[in-house]
Design a protein around this nucleic acid. Structure first.
Lengths: 189, 189
DNA sequence: GTCTATATCAAGATAGAC
DNA sequence: GTCTATCTTGATATAGAC
């Protein structure tokens, strides 16, 4: 909201930065590459983002904002009741027609670059996660189950980001059912 | 086993590389820094590892080997029975006196650097994980539970690596009990 | 087997024109 | 607000002496 006219250029540059990072990997995210992709000169880029760190920060911030908005929208569709937040989060990551996966892939590598360069850029995300855990507990979920849901879904998220493991569709479906039982069930043997 | 005498120098350099990466972060892992820390010249370093990529590969390989050895040793202590591999893996990551955490921290950042630069370096780890999942299933664990255990423990592992979230000791203890029930229990409500 | 010296290159950043 | 030109730095890598 700080900018008025220049917002457009900023968005164009951020789009370009995401495209670069997705195409060339974390190490390929250079000011030169971003400027070329955005169709501006390096000087022009540095007018909008005075340093690479500033660019990274803006990338993380924009992605975090989008993820939050997506979550809020999904939450509005979810009926009241125990495990509400957990169900939404579960659907976002394992849901069939979940439109979240493209967003996830967009956020992946920038986050890694951010981590490598300046871990403090993660602070906003950390805060959001803390809030989510709290909300899950206030939904009526026992804390350790909330941690289990969060950690399992984050594990799968990281696997995808790193292209490390990818359970089959059937296995994911069964895992989802298991997690849903953990959210809704009263007792675990 | 390829080297005889020079093994020692290689180990010294790898130790130095780990120290550098731990002290200065992923971006601080430079040949200059490693050489200085190891007490050799850059030329000397490049004699043993002809490129930075070669150095990274050796770092990942050594860490993977250590983790594997640790797991094997722990497995030997574990009594036969259902969920054997799962219990060992659980203890490695959440166990009280688990000596695995220092090892985990040692492997964290190098892995990230490797991922950023050349994701293919992860291949050996991917293979090891696939084997672990198979072993868990052959232990008698339903596949979706095996995935749940693996993903949850990996999620927590990543949280730690990224210093993203850290549940309290009590919460971890309860989570561990919950996971143990999932390993041993017959049914989940 | 290890060192010094140096080549090469690309990146982030600045200054000032337009 | 954007561009060109340039500076500075630091990184990978090579060649050849010891």
């Amino acid at each position: 909201m700080k900018q008025k006219r220049s917002t457009n250029s900023r968005e164009v540059i951020l789009d370009a930065a995401e495209a670069v990072v997705q195409g060339r990997g974390a190490l390929g995210l250079t000011l030169d590459a971003v400027a070329a992709r955005a169709g501006v000169s390096k000087g022009g880029l540095l007018y909008h983002f005075p340093s690479k760190d500033a660019l990274l920060e803006a990338m993380v911030a924009r992605i975090a904002r989008m993820a939050r908005q997506h979550f809020t929208e999904e939450l509005a569709k979810e009926p009241e009741g125990r495990g509400r937040h957990a169900h939404v989060f579960l659907r976002m990551l394992l849901g069939g027609k979940g439109s979240f996966f493209p967003l996830l892939q967009r956020m992946a590598t920038p986050l890694f670059v951010a981590i490598a360069g300046n871990p403090e850029l993660l602070a906003p995300m950390r805060a959001a996660y803390g809030e989510l855990h709290q909300a899950m507990i206030q939904d009526g979920l026992p804390p350790e189950r909330a941690w289990l849901i969060l950690s399992a879904l984050d594990g799968i998220k990281f696997w995808r980001i790193l292209q490390f493991m990818e359970p089959s569709g059937l296995e994911l479906k069964r895992l989802r059912i298991l997690l849903e039982r953990l959210i809704d069930g009263e007792e675990v043997v």
